[in-house]
Design a protein around this nucleic acid. Structure first.
Lengths: 198, 198
DNA sequence: TATTTAAACGGACCCACGGTCCACATCGTA
DNA sequence: TACGATGTGGACCGTGGGTCCGTTTAAATA
Protein backbone atom coordinates (compact mmCIF):
# COMPACT_ATOMS: atom_id res chain seq x y z
CA UNK A 1 0.00 0.00 0.00
CA UNK A 2 2.36 2.62 1.21
CA UNK A 3 5.05 1.47 -1.17
CA UNK A 4 2.55 1.48 -4.03
CA UNK A 5 1.67 5.06 -3.37
CA UNK A 6 5.29 6.00 -2.98
CA UNK A 7 6.09 4.33 -6.26
CA UNK A 8 3.28 5.96 -8.15
CA UNK A 9 3.61 9.49 -6.81
CA UNK A 10 6.76 11.53 -6.98
CA UNK A 11 8.60 11.81 -3.73
CA UNK A 12 7.53 14.61 -1.41
CA UNK A 13 9.78 17.63 -1.72
CA UNK A 14 12.16 18.26 1.12
CA UNK A 15 11.16 21.91 1.51
CA UNK A 16 7.55 20.83 1.71
CA UNK A 17 8.38 18.47 4.52
CA UNK A 18 10.33 21.12 6.36
CA UNK A 19 7.49 23.60 6.03
CA UNK A 20 4.86 21.14 7.15
CA UNK A 21 6.79 20.40 10.28
CA UNK A 22 7.47 24.04 10.97
CA UNK A 23 3.76 24.78 10.70
CA UNK A 24 2.77 21.92 12.99
CA UNK A 25 5.33 22.96 15.57
CA UNK A 26 4.33 26.61 15.42
CA UNK A 27 0.63 25.82 15.69
CA UNK A 28 1.17 23.45 18.58
CA UNK A 29 3.14 26.11 20.38
CA UNK A 30 0.72 28.95 19.70
CA UNK A 31 -2.32 26.98 20.80
CA UNK A 32 -0.56 25.90 23.95
CA UNK A 33 0.29 29.49 24.85
CA UNK A 34 -2.85 31.40 23.97
CA UNK A 35 -5.72 31.55 26.43
CA UNK A 36 -8.41 30.90 23.90
CA UNK A 37 -8.19 29.00 20.62
CA UNK A 38 -9.84 31.98 18.94
CA UNK A 39 -6.82 34.04 19.85
CA UNK A 40 -4.80 32.08 17.34
CA UNK A 41 -5.44 33.13 13.77
CA UNK A 42 -4.18 31.44 10.66
CA UNK A 43 -2.04 34.51 9.96
CA UNK A 44 -0.47 34.08 13.38
CA UNK A 45 0.44 30.49 12.64
CA UNK A 46 1.80 31.35 9.23
CA UNK A 47 3.91 34.15 10.64
CA UNK A 48 5.21 32.06 13.52
CA UNK A 49 6.14 29.27 11.16
CA UNK A 50 7.84 31.70 8.79
CA UNK A 51 5.60 30.58 5.98
CA UNK A 52 3.04 32.14 3.68
CA UNK A 53 -0.63 31.79 4.31
CA UNK A 54 -1.20 30.01 1.04
CA UNK A 55 1.15 27.24 2.08
CA UNK A 56 -0.82 26.70 5.21
CA UNK A 57 -4.11 26.27 3.41
CA UNK A 58 -2.55 24.19 0.65
CA UNK A 59 -1.28 21.66 3.17
CA UNK A 60 -4.15 21.51 5.61
CA UNK A 61 -7.19 22.59 3.66
CA UNK A 62 -8.67 24.80 6.33
CA UNK A 63 -8.34 25.78 9.94
CA UNK A 64 -10.02 22.62 11.16
CA UNK A 65 -7.66 20.51 9.10
CA UNK A 66 -4.68 22.18 10.66
CA UNK A 67 -5.94 21.65 14.19
CA UNK A 68 -6.74 18.05 13.43
CA UNK A 69 -3.22 17.49 12.12
CA UNK A 70 -1.68 18.94 15.26
CA UNK A 71 -3.88 16.81 17.50
CA UNK A 72 -3.19 13.77 15.40
CA UNK A 73 0.54 14.20 15.90
CA UNK A 74 0.14 14.56 19.65
CA UNK A 75 -2.22 11.68 20.15
CA UNK A 76 -0.42 9.14 18.03
CA UNK A 77 1.36 7.32 20.90
CA UNK A 78 -1.85 6.99 22.87
CA UNK A 79 -3.64 5.62 19.85
CA UNK A 80 -0.89 3.10 19.41
CA UNK A 81 -1.12 2.07 23.05
CA UNK A 82 -4.86 1.56 22.77
CA UNK A 83 -4.72 -0.33 19.52
CA UNK A 84 -1.90 -2.72 20.18
CA UNK A 85 -0.36 -1.97 23.54
CA UNK A 86 -0.41 -3.94 26.80
CA UNK A 87 -2.97 -3.68 29.59
CA UNK A 88 -4.65 -1.60 30.82
CA UNK A 89 -5.17 0.24 27.51
CA UNK A 90 -4.54 -2.49 24.96
CA UNK A 91 -7.21 -4.68 23.43
CA UNK A 92 -6.31 -7.65 25.58
CA UNK A 93 -7.46 -5.97 28.77
CA UNK A 94 -10.61 -7.28 30.48
CA UNK A 95 -13.39 -4.82 29.66
CA UNK A 96 -14.23 -3.83 33.22
CA UNK A 97 -10.68 -2.71 33.64
CA UNK A 98 -10.22 -1.26 30.19
CA UNK A 99 -13.19 1.10 30.14
CA UNK A 100 -12.00 3.17 33.11
CA UNK A 101 -8.47 3.10 31.71
CA UNK A 102 -9.61 4.41 28.33
CA UNK A 103 -11.59 7.25 29.84
CA UNK A 104 -8.79 8.16 32.16
CA UNK A 105 -6.44 8.25 29.20
CA UNK A 106 -8.76 10.53 27.28
CA UNK A 107 -9.05 12.82 30.26
CA UNK A 108 -5.33 12.87 30.86
CA UNK A 109 -4.75 13.78 27.26
CA UNK A 110 -7.19 16.64 27.46
CA UNK A 111 -5.68 17.84 30.71
CA UNK A 112 -2.21 17.79 29.20
CA UNK A 113 -3.38 19.48 25.99
CA UNK A 114 -6.16 21.68 27.21
CA UNK A 115 -6.04 24.47 24.70
CA UNK A 116 -5.44 22.17 21.81
CA UNK A 117 -8.36 19.94 22.70
CA UNK A 118 -10.51 22.99 23.16
CA UNK A 119 -9.49 24.21 19.74
CA UNK A 120 -10.37 20.88 18.18
CA UNK A 121 -13.80 20.66 19.76
CA UNK A 122 -14.85 24.13 18.84
CA UNK A 123 -13.36 23.92 15.38
CA UNK A 124 -16.16 25.42 13.38
CA UNK A 125 -16.97 23.12 10.52
CA UNK A 126 -19.46 20.57 11.75
CA UNK A 127 -19.91 19.03 15.16
CA UNK A 128 -17.10 17.24 16.98
CA UNK A 129 -19.06 14.05 16.58
CA UNK A 130 -18.33 13.74 12.92
CA UNK A 131 -14.57 13.80 13.29
CA UNK A 132 -12.61 10.63 12.73
CA UNK A 133 -10.98 11.29 16.07
CA UNK A 134 -14.23 11.11 18.04
CA UNK A 135 -15.62 8.25 16.01
CA UNK A 136 -12.58 6.18 16.79
CA UNK A 137 -12.81 6.73 20.54
CA UNK A 138 -16.51 6.06 20.46
CA UNK A 139 -16.16 2.83 18.50
CA UNK A 140 -13.37 1.58 20.73
CA UNK A 141 -15.23 2.38 23.90
CA UNK A 142 -18.44 0.92 22.59
CA UNK A 143 -16.83 -2.34 21.60
CA UNK A 144 -15.26 -2.65 24.99
CA UNK A 145 -18.55 -1.94 26.73
CA UNK A 146 -20.19 -4.59 24.60
CA UNK A 147 -17.88 -7.18 26.06
CA UNK A 148 -19.25 -6.58 29.54
CA UNK A 149 -22.00 -9.16 30.07
CA UNK A 150 -25.49 -7.78 30.49
CA UNK A 151 -24.58 -4.28 29.40
CA UNK A 152 -27.12 -2.61 27.13
CA UNK A 153 -27.12 0.72 25.29
CA UNK A 154 -23.40 0.61 24.76
CA UNK A 155 -23.68 3.21 22.01
CA UNK A 156 -25.33 5.81 24.15
CA UNK A 157 -23.27 4.94 27.21
CA UNK A 158 -20.11 5.49 25.22
CA UNK A 159 -21.35 8.90 24.13
CA UNK A 160 -22.39 9.82 27.64
CA UNK A 161 -19.08 8.79 29.17
CA UNK A 162 -17.06 10.63 26.56
CA UNK A 163 -19.26 13.67 27.09
CA UNK A 164 -18.01 13.77 30.67
CA UNK A 165 -14.54 14.42 29.28
CA UNK A 166 -15.50 17.27 26.94
CA UNK A 167 -12.69 19.73 26.57
CA UNK A 168 -14.68 22.73 27.65
CA UNK A 169 -15.87 20.94 30.76
CA UNK A 170 -12.31 19.94 31.60
CA UNK A 171 -11.21 23.50 31.02
CA UNK A 172 -13.99 24.76 33.26
CA UNK A 173 -13.15 22.41 36.11
CA UNK A 174 -9.38 22.55 35.93
CA UNK A 175 -9.15 26.14 34.77
CA UNK A 176 -11.96 28.36 35.94
CA UNK A 177 -12.96 26.27 38.90
CA UNK A 178 -9.39 25.59 40.00
CA UNK A 179 -9.69 21.84 40.52
CA UNK A 180 -6.48 19.86 40.26
CA UNK A 181 -6.07 17.38 37.47
CA UNK A 182 -5.91 14.57 39.98
CA UNK A 183 -9.19 15.59 41.51
CA UNK A 184 -10.92 15.63 38.14
CA UNK A 185 -9.50 12.21 37.35
CA UNK A 186 -10.72 10.83 40.65
CA UNK A 187 -14.21 12.24 40.10
CA UNK A 188 -14.37 10.84 36.59
CA UNK A 189 -13.19 7.45 37.82
CA UNK A 190 -15.92 7.40 40.45
CA UNK A 191 -18.48 8.36 37.88
CA UNK A 192 -17.37 5.65 35.47
CA UNK A 193 -17.55 3.12 38.28
CA UNK A 194 -21.14 4.12 38.95
CA UNK A 195 -22.09 3.73 35.34
CA UNK A 196 -20.47 0.32 35.10
CA UNK A 197 -22.43 -0.74 38.15
CA UNK A 198 -20.88 -2.04 41.27
CA UNK B 1 -38.64 47.02 43.74
CA UNK B 2 -40.27 46.99 40.37
CA UNK B 3 -42.49 49.94 41.22
CA UNK B 4 -39.51 51.84 42.60
CA UNK B 5 -37.61 51.39 39.39
CA UNK B 6 -40.64 52.30 37.37
CA UNK B 7 -41.10 55.43 39.40
CA UNK B 8 -37.47 56.51 39.12
CA UNK B 9 -36.79 55.69 35.49
CA UNK B 10 -38.80 56.91 32.55
CA UNK B 11 -41.21 54.39 31.19
CA UNK B 12 -39.88 52.11 28.43
CA UNK B 13 -40.79 53.45 25.06
CA UNK B 14 -43.49 51.64 23.15
CA UNK B 15 -41.49 51.46 19.93
CA UNK B 16 -38.61 49.97 21.90
CA UNK B 17 -40.87 47.25 23.21
CA UNK B 18 -42.29 46.55 19.80
CA UNK B 19 -38.84 46.32 18.28
CA UNK B 20 -37.51 44.07 21.00
CA UNK B 21 -40.34 41.68 20.46
CA UNK B 22 -39.97 41.80 16.70
CA UNK B 23 -36.29 40.96 17.03
CA UNK B 24 -36.88 38.06 19.40
CA UNK B 25 -39.57 36.64 17.17
CA UNK B 26 -37.46 37.02 14.04
CA UNK B 27 -34.40 35.46 15.65
CA UNK B 28 -36.39 32.56 17.05
CA UNK B 29 -37.84 31.91 13.64
CA UNK B 30 -34.56 32.21 11.75
CA UNK B 31 -32.70 29.89 14.09
CA UNK B 32 -35.49 27.35 13.93
CA UNK B 33 -35.38 27.33 10.14
CA UNK B 34 -31.69 27.43 9.35
CA UNK B 35 -29.68 24.24 9.35
CA UNK B 36 -26.73 25.64 11.23
CA UNK B 37 -26.67 28.50 13.73
CA UNK B 38 -23.83 29.98 11.72
CA UNK B 39 -26.18 30.40 8.83
CA UNK B 40 -27.97 33.11 10.75
CA UNK B 41 -26.13 36.42 10.78
CA UNK B 42 -26.97 39.48 12.81
CA UNK B 43 -27.77 41.27 9.57
CA UNK B 44 -30.24 38.52 8.74
CA UNK B 45 -31.98 38.95 12.05
CA UNK B 46 -32.06 42.73 11.73
CA UNK B 47 -33.47 42.50 8.22
CA UNK B 48 -36.08 39.91 9.16
CA UNK B 49 -37.18 42.01 12.11
CA UNK B 50 -37.34 45.13 9.98
CA UNK B 51 -34.92 46.88 12.26
CA UNK B 52 -31.49 48.46 12.00
CA UNK B 53 -28.40 46.63 13.09
CA UNK B 54 -27.58 49.26 15.68
CA UNK B 55 -30.87 48.62 17.44
CA UNK B 56 -30.08 44.96 17.67
CA UNK B 57 -26.72 45.51 19.33
CA UNK B 58 -28.06 48.27 21.55
CA UNK B 59 -30.69 45.93 22.99
CA UNK B 60 -28.74 42.72 23.28
CA UNK B 61 -25.12 43.71 23.50
CA UNK B 62 -23.79 41.07 21.17
CA UNK B 63 -24.75 37.93 19.31
CA UNK B 64 -24.52 35.79 22.42
CA UNK B 65 -26.78 38.17 24.30
CA UNK B 66 -29.40 37.91 21.60
CA UNK B 67 -29.33 34.13 21.58
CA UNK B 68 -29.54 34.04 25.34
CA UNK B 69 -32.57 36.30 25.29
CA UNK B 70 -34.34 34.07 22.79
CA UNK B 71 -33.60 30.96 24.82
CA UNK B 72 -34.64 32.70 27.99
CA UNK B 73 -38.02 33.47 26.51
CA UNK B 74 -38.53 29.89 25.39
CA UNK B 75 -37.42 28.25 28.58
CA UNK B 76 -39.32 30.43 31.00
CA UNK B 77 -42.26 28.02 31.58
CA UNK B 78 -39.91 25.12 32.26
CA UNK B 79 -37.94 27.19 34.72
CA UNK B 80 -41.15 28.10 36.47
CA UNK B 81 -42.19 24.46 36.64
CA UNK B 82 -38.86 23.47 38.16
CA UNK B 83 -38.74 26.29 40.67
CA UNK B 84 -42.26 26.21 42.00
CA UNK B 85 -44.30 23.65 40.12
CA UNK B 86 -45.69 20.29 41.22
CA UNK B 87 -43.99 16.89 40.99
CA UNK B 88 -42.12 15.53 39.19
CA UNK B 89 -40.22 18.73 38.36
CA UNK B 90 -40.98 20.93 41.35
CA UNK B 91 -38.84 21.20 44.45
CA UNK B 92 -41.15 19.03 46.52
CA UNK B 93 -40.39 15.91 44.49
CA UNK B 94 -38.36 13.13 46.12
CA UNK B 95 -34.84 13.39 44.71
CA UNK B 96 -34.66 9.92 43.17
CA UNK B 97 -37.68 10.81 41.13
CA UNK B 98 -36.75 14.41 40.45
CA UNK B 99 -33.27 13.86 39.01
CA UNK B 100 -34.47 11.76 36.06
CA UNK B 101 -37.35 14.18 35.54
CA UNK B 102 -35.03 17.18 35.40
CA UNK B 103 -32.73 15.55 32.90
CA UNK B 104 -35.59 14.39 30.77
CA UNK B 105 -36.95 17.93 30.78
CA UNK B 106 -33.61 19.32 29.68
CA UNK B 107 -33.40 16.77 26.91
CA UNK B 108 -36.95 17.39 25.78
CA UNK B 109 -36.25 21.09 25.61
CA UNK B 110 -33.19 20.54 23.50
CA UNK B 111 -35.03 18.15 21.22
CA UNK B 112 -37.82 20.65 20.75
CA UNK B 113 -35.41 23.54 20.20
CA UNK B 114 -32.48 21.86 18.55
CA UNK B 115 -31.09 24.67 16.49
CA UNK B 116 -31.60 27.23 19.18
CA UNK B 117 -29.86 25.14 21.81
CA UNK B 118 -27.06 24.48 19.40
CA UNK B 119 -26.71 28.18 18.78
CA UNK B 120 -26.56 28.88 22.48
CA UNK B 121 -23.91 26.29 23.19
CA UNK B 122 -21.63 27.29 20.40
CA UNK B 123 -22.14 30.99 21.04
CA UNK B 124 -18.58 32.16 20.86
CA UNK B 125 -17.84 34.29 23.86
CA UNK B 126 -16.72 31.96 26.61
CA UNK B 127 -17.67 28.41 27.40
CA UNK B 128 -21.27 27.33 27.92
CA UNK B 129 -20.36 26.61 31.50
CA UNK B 130 -20.19 30.24 32.49
CA UNK B 131 -23.70 31.09 31.37
CA UNK B 132 -26.33 31.77 33.96
CA UNK B 133 -28.48 29.23 32.16
CA UNK B 134 -26.07 26.35 32.71
CA UNK B 135 -25.16 27.40 36.22
CA UNK B 136 -28.80 27.31 37.19
CA UNK B 137 -29.39 23.81 35.85
CA UNK B 138 -26.21 22.62 37.46
CA UNK B 139 -27.01 24.10 40.85
CA UNK B 140 -30.54 22.72 40.79
CA UNK B 141 -29.40 19.27 39.78
CA UNK B 142 -26.58 19.27 42.29
CA UNK B 143 -28.83 20.22 45.17
CA UNK B 144 -31.25 17.51 44.26
CA UNK B 145 -28.46 14.93 44.04
CA UNK B 146 -27.25 16.04 47.45
CA UNK B 147 -30.56 15.01 48.92
CA UNK B 148 -30.00 11.41 47.91
CA UNK B 149 -28.45 9.67 50.92
CA UNK B 150 -24.94 8.37 50.40
CA UNK B 151 -24.40 10.19 47.14
CA UNK B 152 -20.95 11.77 46.78
CA UNK B 153 -19.42 13.97 44.07
CA UNK B 154 -22.72 15.64 43.35
CA UNK B 155 -20.92 18.51 41.62
CA UNK B 156 -19.16 16.34 39.09
CA UNK B 157 -22.10 14.01 38.69
CA UNK B 158 -24.32 16.95 37.82
CA UNK B 159 -21.83 18.07 35.19
CA UNK B 160 -21.48 14.58 33.77
CA UNK B 161 -25.23 14.04 33.54
CA UNK B 162 -25.83 17.39 31.90
CA UNK B 163 -22.99 16.65 29.49
CA UNK B 164 -25.01 13.70 28.24
CA UNK B 165 -27.63 16.19 27.03
CA UNK B 166 -25.27 18.50 25.17
CA UNK B 167 -26.97 20.11 22.22
CA UNK B 168 -24.46 18.90 19.67
CA UNK B 169 -24.76 15.34 20.94
CA UNK B 170 -28.53 15.53 20.76
CA UNK B 171 -28.26 16.94 17.28
CA UNK B 172 -25.90 14.16 16.28
CA UNK B 173 -28.15 11.40 17.61
CA UNK B 174 -31.51 12.78 16.55
CA UNK B 175 -30.29 14.47 13.39
CA UNK B 176 -27.32 12.79 11.75
CA UNK B 177 -27.83 9.39 13.29
CA UNK B 178 -31.58 9.40 12.78
CA UNK B 179 -32.63 8.26 16.23
CA UNK B 180 -36.12 9.23 17.31
CA UNK B 181 -36.54 11.62 20.19
CA UNK B 182 -38.23 8.90 22.20
CA UNK B 183 -35.30 6.59 21.74
CA UNK B 184 -32.83 9.20 22.92
CA UNK B 185 -35.00 9.90 25.95
CA UNK B 186 -35.17 6.22 26.80
CA UNK B 187 -31.41 5.84 26.51
CA UNK B 188 -30.78 8.87 28.67
CA UNK B 189 -33.25 7.60 31.26
CA UNK B 190 -31.45 4.27 31.39
CA UNK B 191 -28.14 6.02 31.75
CA UNK B 192 -29.39 8.22 34.57
CA UNK B 193 -30.76 5.17 36.33
CA UNK B 194 -27.34 3.53 36.17
CA UNK B 195 -25.65 6.56 37.62
CA UNK B 196 -28.14 6.82 40.45
CA UNK B 197 -27.49 3.19 41.22
CA UNK B 198 -30.19 0.63 41.32
C1' DT C 1 -50.93 72.22 21.68
C1' DA C 2 -46.12 73.68 21.29
C1' DT C 3 -41.65 72.85 23.09
C1' DT C 4 -38.05 70.37 24.85
C1' DT C 5 -35.20 66.42 25.80
C1' DA C 6 -33.15 62.15 25.93
C1' DA C 7 -33.98 57.57 24.49
C1' DA C 8 -34.09 54.91 20.45
C1' DC C 9 -33.04 54.30 15.74
C1' DG C 10 -30.64 52.69 11.38
C1' DG C 11 -27.35 51.90 8.23
C1' DA C 12 -22.78 53.45 6.68
C1' DC C 13 -18.57 52.21 8.30
C1' DC C 14 -14.59 49.58 10.35
C1' DC C 15 -11.65 45.73 10.88
C1' DA C 16 -10.25 40.97 11.84
C1' DC C 17 -10.20 36.66 9.92
C1' DG C 18 -10.81 32.59 6.96
C1' DG C 19 -10.00 31.44 2.53
C1' DT C 20 -8.56 32.13 -2.67
C1' DC C 21 -5.48 33.19 -6.50
C1' DC C 22 -1.68 33.35 -9.29
C1' DA C 23 2.91 35.12 -10.63
C1' DC C 24 7.14 33.41 -9.12
C1' DA C 25 10.64 30.29 -6.83
C1' DT C 26 12.45 25.79 -6.05
C1' DC C 27 13.09 20.95 -6.41
C1' DG C 28 13.99 16.66 -8.83
C1' DT C 29 15.04 14.76 -13.12
C1' DA C 30 17.05 13.99 -17.66
C1' DT D 1 21.74 23.01 -18.03
C1' DA D 2 17.13 22.88 -19.06
C1' DC D 3 12.53 21.78 -18.07
C1' DG D 4 8.27 20.44 -16.06
C1' DA D 5 5.96 19.59 -11.75
C1' DT D 6 5.34 20.97 -7.22
C1' DG D 7 5.44 24.28 -3.76
C1' DT D 8 5.39 29.11 -2.17
C1' DG D 9 3.85 33.70 -0.33
C1' DG D 10 1.38 37.54 0.23
C1' DA D 11 -1.91 40.64 -2.06
C1' DC D 12 -6.60 40.29 -2.37
C1' DC D 13 -11.62 39.19 -1.42
C1' DG D 14 -16.10 38.37 1.05
C1' DT D 15 -18.33 37.89 5.23
C1' DG D 16 -19.80 38.95 9.54
C1' DG D 17 -19.55 40.94 14.22
C1' DG D 18 -19.47 45.20 16.29
C1' DT D 19 -19.20 50.61 16.41
C1' DC D 20 -20.53 55.45 15.48
C1' DC D 21 -23.16 59.25 14.98
C1' DG D 22 -26.56 62.25 12.64
C1' DT D 23 -31.54 61.80 12.64
C1' DT D 24 -36.10 60.47 14.36
C1' DT D 25 -39.63 60.11 17.70
C1' DA D 26 -41.98 59.04 22.10
C1' DA D 27 -42.77 61.11 26.34
C1' DA D 28 -42.46 64.76 29.81
C1' DT D 29 -43.34 69.72 30.49
C1' DA D 30 -45.29 74.06 29.94
Amino acid sequence: MTSNEAARARKERVDAVRNREAVLAAADDLFARSDSPRGVSMDDVAAAAGVGKGTLFRRFGDRTGLIRAVVEARIEPLRQAVEEGPAPLGPGTPPRERVPALLDAVLEFKLANRHLSLALEEAGSGSPYRTEYYQWWHATLRQTLDRIPGHADSGFTAHALLAATRADLVEHLAGTEGMTGERVRADLAAHVAKVLGG
